[in-house]
Design a protein around this nucleic acid. Structure first.
Lengths: 138, 138
DNA sequence: CCCCAAAGGTTGATGCGTCAACCAGAATAC
DNA sequence: GTATTCTGGTTGACGCATCAACCTTTGGGG
């Protein structure tokens, strides 16, 4: 069930805009950043991604012209990721369609009470999870 | 949240037994089959997988010695997948640990009412989903 | 100053999933 | 009985995720 939901969301996202869910997350983070650019490190923290995951993702997105990589003057190691014009256009186009789809599938399908219940159940399970694996807690 | 749960389950499964979730599904289906063997087609239907997905998965599992492929005498096209002794041992070892973990994370963490609510919410969303994409309905 | 550890990123290998192209055997049409 | 289509399965290419190994730069201690 979980998988069917995620699938439906991602598919509609990708079909409508040619943008995958990981693409979307990166683009969204960059869009709301000053200058539409972020240091890779910051991006990683916001997305809670591993560094290699981000590196691979950025490489692919760079090849498609959605983002560009610049060097960071202050720190020779660092890289900054910047939204290109094409990337900005892509995220703008995708946002509206995606929000509409989420609303359609979840908010309109569930009663407020059901949404509450869903949230509480999730919270309870997560609490249990973190109890058992404290390392994964924030 | 969804992802954290799935992650926790899969990780414990894999760590305890060296068996991934897809491995587990295949092994479980074969274990309860007569002769511990199934035609690929049947396996595909039970798991609701695409054919190429199964082909790739079986190839990898065959290389690890968990399953073997035989030809089907009745139909020259068909292939049958068979559990090896190693595969049988693997699924046996994995089952107990996995069940315990599911119980620990879900059943013990949620009240019966919460489980009910969870199920109802899921059903409502799925119904809505199938309404919109009738092709995906059974 | 020099060496060494830590931080920031990249790369390569591997597993997983999907899509599209393909191939061989089987069924069906005619 | 041959041509066509259908079915079952495989393969290759690609995106995505993780792990481990690696390289540079930075920042300290000594």
């Amino acid at each position: 069930m979980r998988d069917q939901l995620a699938l439906a969301l991602n598919q509609s996202l990708q079909q409508d805009s040619g943008i995958s869910e990981p693409d979307f997350e990166v683009l969204a983070a960059l869009e709301e950043a000053p200058e539409h650019a972020l240091r890779a490190r910051t991006l990683r923290q916001e997305l809670q991604w591993e560094k290699s995951r981000l590196a691979h993702q950025i490489r692919r997105m760079e090849q498609r012209g959605l983002v560009a990589r610049d060097e960071c003057p202050e720190d020779g190691r660092a890289a900054t990721v910047r939204l290109t014009d094409a990337g900005l256009a892509a995220i703008r186009a995708a946002t509206a369609a995606h929000a509409a789809r989420v609303r359609e599938l979840f908010l309109d399908a569930l009663t407020p009470a059901q949404l509450d219940a869903l949230h509480e159940a999730g919270t309870a399970v997560l609490a249990r999870l973190h109890q058992n694996c404290p390392a994964e807690a924030p």
